[in-house]
Design a protein around this nucleic acid. Structure first.
Lengths: 206, 206, 206, 206
DNA sequence: TATGAATGAGAGTTCATTCAT
DNA sequence: GATGAATGAACTCTCATTCAT
């Protein structure tokens, strides 16, 4: 089931019993497809993402997508996983260049609240509501983000504040991504900064 | 509300442009259906909600659902609207019995973060991302909730804090509804209360 | 599962749970389709019979066939059942006009060994090998034919001879239907008559 | 046999006309595969036998099967031929150890009516109905079995009785293989013995 | 000689929708 | 006002086959 894990073969349930289905045979191409598919899923929503859509966006035929991923749902799960891993990687690279805790927190918030990431996160979350396997992934990732945030909190109770901060990031991203004129990206940044200062017990202007 | 009120004909967006479609045939039955359909949408997700699902859950035939609502998308939009109105009504009734601002805020948070309401809210939000009509509804509702919250904030900048509080409510509901053991409903309440106290500049224990 | 049984609704397992599926709503049309579908199954074999084939042969659209029968396999089973019932009816009508036991036996043999009936019988038999429900049908029908034959055997041990006779009918039909020049329909009739006489202990020429 | 013997190239009917296809690459492996494939065909039916089924049952990859046999239909025909030849070989070996005509006839009947042989025979017969090449094979084999039986008939008209006996064997195998409680293998043996005695004009108990 | 990667054709099935009543 | 019959469109999936190695 770990479509992203090491090579070899994967056993999937087919209509007429069990058959072997190769995995990671052309990893490069597969990853390319996953990246583009992530954009499609973010744009259309997971439920509405057809093989045809991904095929059109990637230039890879429908049959080949099925050869790569198995069923449509397997493809979507692979997209979620790939995106989640990619997010951690990208944020990790970014954090490696920053020293200041506030800047680090802001970098995390900016990434999580970006349109693509946030939309995929919501899709993952919905899928997780109906699929235990995905739910485990999502909860694990959620924990990882909280830990990453807590590691950058220098005052108060880092664990508690990290939960509040992650909730704020999530909750502020919602109107931003929806294009609410009352809470645009800049306003969300201000609101987050202000709230953070208060949660940490500092002066509002940090 | 719009879909439920007034007699005569309603103009709805159909697959092939605009068509007239009768309203208030048997408003009572229709509202019953909307309530049950809301549960179906919350459980399965809007994209995955078929006429047959709602038919099975309500005992009303598919053709009758179409007679009531028009297309499937029209039905979903009606469900969103009905649920949104219902939420305002229910919270309004609850608030009429409460005096203390914190209790009032908690009542709002409790309702918004309840499983059914939150799931439907996420579905509305996703639909709004792709449908301008629904987006207008959602943004208007979001504004109404912020105003309701601001009206119960007694210190600091009510408007700003209301935005932060609504974001917190939304962001905390996410792990709660997903069943994250790290942030269950009780923990979310504590985190919200604590954050609120700090955002209002009071002592943490309020 | 009894597609041929009385009206009402039938519960069939769908991909996303259980749904109701109407049965026997336009019995006349449905029976017409079953008759033609039987010819298609006899000609192409059950496994190779597609909805498309039956659609082309009947002029009824694929969707309508599925509306009538459910899945392809349900359709095939309905075809088997319909053909089996039809065979009993037709032979019953024929026997009502005959007095002489040998003529009656010959009428039975002629019907069972006819191209259409025999081919469908083989298809039923193969299907029965893999589907317990069909197996029950086939075994029951086999019993009924043996009883019908035994009722027309006037000497010796009717039950034992009936089994031998039915085996002979089946075994002789095989080369006949395949077009074996060594055993054509006339030769099969002679061989059957001769064998019957000996099995009954009479003179070969009866 | 044809497909297994001789080196060089074999001309087989492909989808797009005639193509050359190498033979006797690794005859041993190929024969192993044919034996296992025969079991698969007997179990699933020829139409339902996929390359993947044979691949799973043999451990030989799909591409290799195609390399061995060409198209799927070529593989099935090879299976039929191999099984037919194997049956003659096995019965020949068995008959070499028997003297008594009745025992020899019983040995033939037992082999033809065995589950595997009989199922493959039915599959061959069905295929022969639609493929002239296979029909020729089947009719030739049928003739060979009749001759073998006739050679062991010591009274009456051997040719005529052989046809009746082969029909009886075929017809009795049908309920036996299907698991009809009314005609199990032992009962079929008794019925065959009894019928044979009468057809040969001897006393029933031979 | 043998095999994995990739792909096109075709099938079953679901489902919204139209029409007649 | 309400509903069952019928159907076309779209989608997923299976599978044989081709190609390159």
């Amino acid at each position: 089931m770990l479509g992203l894990a090491g090579g070899g073969v994967r056993i999937v349930a087919g209509a007429a019993g069990w058959q072997t289905c190769p995995v990671r045979r052309s990893a490069a191409k597969r990853v390319e497809v996953l990246a583009v598919a992530g954009e499609v899923v973010a744009a259309r929503g997971a439920d509405a993402t057809r093989f045809t859509d991904v095929s059109a966006a990637t230039g890879v035929g429908v049959s080949t997508l099925q050869y790569y991923f198995g069923t449509r749902e397997d493809m979507l799960i692979a997209v979620f996983r790939h995106a989640a891993e990619r997010d951690f990687e990208l944020v990790g690279e970014r954090l490696a260049t920053l020293e200041d805790p506030w800047e680090r927190l802001l970098a995390i918030a900016t990434h999580l609240g970006s349109d693509l990431t946030w939309r995929l996160w919501v899709e993952s979350w919905r899928w997780a509501s109906r699929d235990p396997e995905v739910r485990a992934d999502v909860l694990r990732d959620y924990t990882r983000w909280r830990e990453l945030i807590a590691a950058n909190i220098t005052a108060g109770d880092p664990v508690r504040v990290a939960r509040q901060v992650l909730a704020l990031i999530d909750g502020l991203a919602l109107p931003v991504v929806l294009g609410d004129p009352a809470v645009d990206r800049a306003a969300a940044g201000d609101l987050l900064e202000d709230a953070l200062a208060r949660l940490l017990g500092r002066a509002p202007s940090l």
